[in-house]
């Protein structure tokens, strides 16, 4: 399990404040939907958690620790970009990646490959975009990491692949030992997955809460709230 805390975090890129004095606590055992249009600061937040960026001011902590090699071992991070070597086969990628992580679960990985309908002998560069997205999810979910960070795992992929990705997250998520943070600008497909949602707007929190409570209190879907917040 892992609790992630942002305390007055600011991150600038040139003149742009990607995150602006952001303070949030992400509770352990949750599946947090990190929502917002492009440029709202979602990826920046995730990269800070993954330890790829440092804040200009404020602190990010994971179970009280600032991102370091130690926390990196706790975080399974799926970047938005295509980072897998195209010339490798699916099997080679998985063998290669598995060597980096002590928490790699080979049995779970085999099951996921099957569930995703991936051919282990296929060359990565020949895979469709949807299949590459499935492979990335296999890489992230085959680890027993307490914190899983997924940057736009549904972005630009075909509906069947979307469904498989969502199902894989549901089936592999261990609510008693894991926290999942997933960014998306596609709320309709994924809102049922989230226990909590965080709406980011220009690097600040526009709205945050438990998904079911928000539905109950406002009589609106998360998708409707999304449209309201960003209208």
């Amino acid at each position: 399990m892992a609790t992630v805390v942002f305390d007055r975090v600011t991150k600038r890129f040139g003149r742009v404040r990607a995150l602006d004095e952001l303070s949030v606590t992400i509770r352990e055992g949750s599946i947090l939907g990190l929502l917002g249009p492009n440029g709202s600061g979602k990826s920046t937040m995730l990269k800070l958690i993954a330890g790829l960026y440092r804040p200009d001011s404020g602190t990010v902590t994971i179970d009280g620790m600032q991102p370091s090699t130690k926390t990196k071992a706790m975080v399974a991070y799926l970047p938005e970009i295509d980072y897998l070597y195209g010339w490798m086969t699916v099997r080679q990628i998985l063998d290669y990646v598995s060597a980096f992580y002590k928490d790699w679960d080979a049995a779970r990985c085999r099951e996921l490959v099957k569930f995703m309908g991936l051919n282990p002998e296929a060359t990565v560069s020949r895979l469709s975009k949807g299949m590459r997205a499935r492979l990335k999810i296999v890489v992230a979910m085959s680890r027993s990491a307490p914190l899983i960070v997924l940057d736009e795992p549904l972005s630009g992929i075909d509906p069947p692949s979307r469904l498989r990705v969502l199902q894989a997250i549901v089936s592999e998520f261990r609510e008693d030992s894991q926290t999942v943070i997933m960014s998306t600008h596609d709320v309709a497909d994924s809102e049922n997955l989230f226990s909590d949602v965080l709406f980011l707007k220009a690097g600040k929190v526009a709205l945050m809460g438990e998904a079911e409570r928000l539905r109950e209190e406002r009589g609106k879907s998360i998708r409707d709230l999304f449209e309201e917040v960003y209208a």
Binding site: G29, Q167, V170, N192, F194, S195, E212
Partner: peptide, 17 residues
């Protein structure tokens, strides 16, 4: 619970509730 959560892609905690 897990089967239903997968079928409808809903948070396992929601199904549990």
């Amino acid at each position: 619970q897990r089967e239903l959560a997968m079928m409808v892609q809903v948070n396992p905690n929601t199904v549990q509730r």
